Simulated assay, not measured.
Amino acid sequence: MEQRETSTGTSAPDCSISRVEHALGVLRGRWKLLIIHHLLVRQPRRFSDLERAIGRVTQKMLIQQLRALEADGIVHRIVYPEVPPHVEYELTAAGRALATALDALHDWSVQSCHVDA
């Protein structure tokens, strides 16, 4: 991995902006971070549980966001062969790895609330 010099004069691994753009693209969407958050709190979760937990999301939008997260390898969909259908969602290893980033985002939001007050 290439090294680049930081503003402090130290070397740091080169992080391509395209990787950051890709990561932001995976998380882009009004509801994706909330879905991931709720799955980090408790999983697996049924669709109806997620729908109740994220009260303002429409059913259509929740389906779209879950499908996109599944396509990107963040969420795993488990279908149980029952009538009526029983579907649950859980985070993959890649999804669980976002816990650190979400914790940092939470901490930042707490700190920024105190700065503005």
Rank of each mutant, 00 (worst) to 15 (best):
E2K: 11
Q3M: 11
Q3H: 08
E5A: 11
S7D: 07
T8N: 09
T8M: 13
G9Q: 07
T10E: 15
S11P: 02
P13M: 14
P13C: 12
D14N: 10
C15N: 07
C15R: 10
S16N: 12
S16Q: 12
I17T: 09
R19T: 14
V20Q: 09
E21P: 00
A23Q: 04
L24N: 04
G25C: 04
G25Y: 03
V26G: 03
V26T: 12
L27V: 01
G29W: 13
R30L: 11
L33H: 08
L33F: 06
L33E: 12
L34T: 08
I36M: 02
H37N: 14
H38G: 03
H38N: 09
H38D: 01
H38Q: 08
H38V: 06
L39G: 01
L40P: 15
V41W: 04
V41M: 08
R42H: 13
R42G: 10
Q43N: 03
R45Y: 06
S48I: 07
S48R: 05
D49V: 02
D49W: 05
D49M: 03
L50K: 01
L50S: 06
L50W: 01
R52V: 14
R52F: 08
A53R: 09
G55V: 03
G55F: 01
G55R: 05
R56P: 05
T58L: 05
T58A: 03
T58K: 02
K60N: 09
M61G: 05
I63C: 09
I63L: 13
L66W: 02
R67L: 12
R67D: 11
E70M: 04
E70Y: 00
A71E: 08
V75S: 11
H76K: 15
R77F: 07
I78L: 14
E82C: 08
E82H: 07
E82S: 15
V83P: 09
V83I: 14
P84C: 06
P84V: 05
P85T: 08
P85H: 07
H86P: 06
V87E: 03
Y89Q: 01
E90V: 10
E90L: 08
E90N: 02
E90Q: 10
L91N: 00
A93V: 14
A93K: 03
G95V: 00
G95F: 00
G95A: 00
R96C: 04
R96E: 02
R96P: 01
L98A: 04
L98Q: 01
A99W: 03
T100M: 05
T100G: 07
A101S: 11
A104W: 01
A104I: 00
L105I: 13
S109R: 14
V110T: 06
Q111V: 14
Q111L: 15
Q111E: 12
C113F: 15
C113K: 13
V115N: 06
A117M: 15
